[in-house]
């Protein structure tokens, strides 16, 4: 059984990174193709769930030493902050801004404040689902 575990665990690590990267991709794709913060976040969660299945809770917690409730809070702040930024400019709440920027590494790319908002969504989704899973898993 031990060997199987090792194989499983190694396999999982690989799959985890694949799913994780995919989730990041999905997240960025959101504005133009199917995807976005939700799905991205949920996929990340799914990846972590996979880790949980292969390893035990403690190991995963060690590997990801965040307080996920704080992640939730940060996500919410980010989302709210993006939306509330418009208050500073006295335009209606949630008025997004976007422009093309010439960034050193990426070349000309379109940056949209909606993306920041979506990042907040991503964090909240990851944070709260992982919190749930951790607490349920930790309950004996």
């Amino acid at each position: 059984m031990k060997t199987n575990d090792v194989i499983l665990q190694t396999g999982t690590k690989v799959v985890f990174f694949i799913i994780f990267l995919f989730s990041i991709h999905i997240f960025f794709a959101g504005h133009f193709a199917p995807g976005g913060g939700f799905v991205g976040g949920l996929l990340t969660t799914a990846a972590i769930v996979l880790l949980l299945l292969a390893f035990d809770l403690k190991t995963v917690q060690k590997a990801l030493p965040f307080n996920f409730m704080i992640v939730v809070a940060v996500g919410l702040l980010l989302a709210l902050g993006t939306a509330a930024g418009s208050i500073l400019f006295d335009v209606p709440f949630f008025t997004h801004a976007y422009d093309d920027f010439n960034l050193p590494l990426f070349g000309v790319s379109s940056l949209h404040t909606a993306m920041i908002f979506d990042a907040g969504v991503y964090l909240v989704v990851v944070g709260s689902t992982i919190t749930m899973i951790q607490t349920i898993g930790g309950d004996s």
């Binding site: 939700f38 989704v125 709260s128 689902t129 749930m132 349920i136």
Partner: peptide, 17 residues
């Protein structure tokens, strides 16, 4: 629907616990 799905997910998780 997407909004509703996410909300029902939250509720479902809560209910299970």
């Amino acid at each position: 629907i997407l909004t509703a799905i996410v909300i029902s997910f939250g509720v479902t998780a809560f209910i299970i616990v």
